[in-house]
Amino acid sequence: MISRRGLIAASLLLPGAAQAQAPEAWPSRPVRILLAYPPGGSTDVLARTLADRLAVAIPGASFVVENRPGGAAVVGTQAAATAAPDGYTLALGNNQTHAANAAMVRDLPYRPVEDFAPIGRLAEVHHALVVPAASPARSLAELAARGKGGGRLTYASSGVGSASHVIAESFVRRQGLEATHVPYRGGAQAVTDTVSGTVDFFVSTWPQVVALVQDGRLRCLGLGAPARLAALPEVPTFAEAGAPTMAVDAWFGLWAPARTPAAIVARLSEALPRILAEPEMAARLAGLGFTPAPLPAAEFAAFQRAEVARWKALVELTGIRIEG
């Protein structure tokens, strides 16, 4: 039996108890955007530009980019996957962190699809195959001919397991070439050594080499765009150059840890297209070489699953593996 006094006491406590258990309004503190890459690169600039615009799009919010590089982009991505699903940790990643690593990294400590709630795709960047200006190869066919019949090519990449490595090796395997991989720690030195002729070719993101192609220090033999660029009409697409399977874009997206409240994911997902459509943001992305490519959460999830399958096929072709 509960006494009348006990009932009164319990009734007085209930409002306070309900108030104590009520969820806090989101966001009530800064939101981290974890980035699995070091400061200063184009992905880092993209993340910081997005953080600034999100703070405007979501009143009262602040977003802070936290760099967690290391381990073929595994370290930072794993940290995001295991963070509390409370809306205060997000991950800005790309085709490596959320597609290629699923097939390439042995004992990957996170699941790129199941451990994340997709918020939206942000942008994409095309890849290009470039050779030194002094190279005798003026087409992909001529370059391939130099790697056959006893010839041997060397190609640079921005690192073992990077997109530049996988795409270049897929070209080598499909063409049946003899070629030696020369990995670098990032794309800057790879570009420098391609310009100097130290290596025969390099598959780079287009923004990294466009100025050098325009001023004649590099020659582009193929570009992963759907059509030729008006500014460089002489540069063929990979499809036109006879290598359509090399048209593998780098893409970038935003995720939250799995089980993050759906209302928070929806609020962020709804903000992204508006931000990417802003003239100032579009101009900023264009200056960095990015093409805005927004996809809402559901479509982005389907796109990511398709990309996991595509990168699995590429990795199986090339045989590239990284220890987790």
Score class of each variant (00 low, 15 high):
A17V: 14
F303T: 04
A168V: 07
A211Y: 07
P296Y: 08
W26G: 07
A123I: 04
A286G: 15
A298I: 09
P257Q: 10
V113C: 02
R217M: 04
G70K: 10
G161Q: 08
A301H: 11
I264M: 03
F300G: 05
S3L: 04
G76L: 04
I119V: 07
L223T: 06
D107W: 05
P296I: 07
A271K: 10
W26H: 06
S11R: 15
L92M: 09
T260E: 13
L46D: 10
G222L: 00
V130R: 07
Q214S: 14
A47H: 06
A144G: 08
A231S: 15
P109F: 10
A57D: 05
M246C: 12
L254T: 01
M1S: 15
D44M: 06
G253A: 02
A133Q: 00
P236V: 05
A72E: 07
T49A: 14
V191Y: 07
G324S: 11
A179K: 11
P38W: 09
R138L: 04
A36G: 12
I33C: 05
T237D: 08
A103M: 12
D215I: 11
A72C: 01
T82G: 13
L317C: 08
P244I: 08
T245Q: 15
R121D: 00
A243L: 00
P69L: 01
Y88N: 05
M1D: 14
A117K: 10
L295F: 08
G289W: 00
I58T: 14
A266Y: 10
G60T: 02
D52K: 15
D107T: 06
G41E: 12
Q208F: 12
P30E: 11
G197L: 06
R267L: 05
L272V: 06
E278I: 00
A133Y: 10
I322L: 12
L50H: 03
A84T: 13
L14Q: 04
G324D: 08
Q19F: 15
A51W: 04
R305A: 14
A256E: 14
A263K: 13
T192A: 15
N94D: 15
A80K: 09
G222P: 00
G6K: 13
P118C: 07
P226V: 10
L14F: 12
S157H: 01
Q96L: 13
R174D: 01
P292D: 09
L285S: 13
W206P: 03
V160G: 08
T260F: 06
G222V: 10
W255V: 14
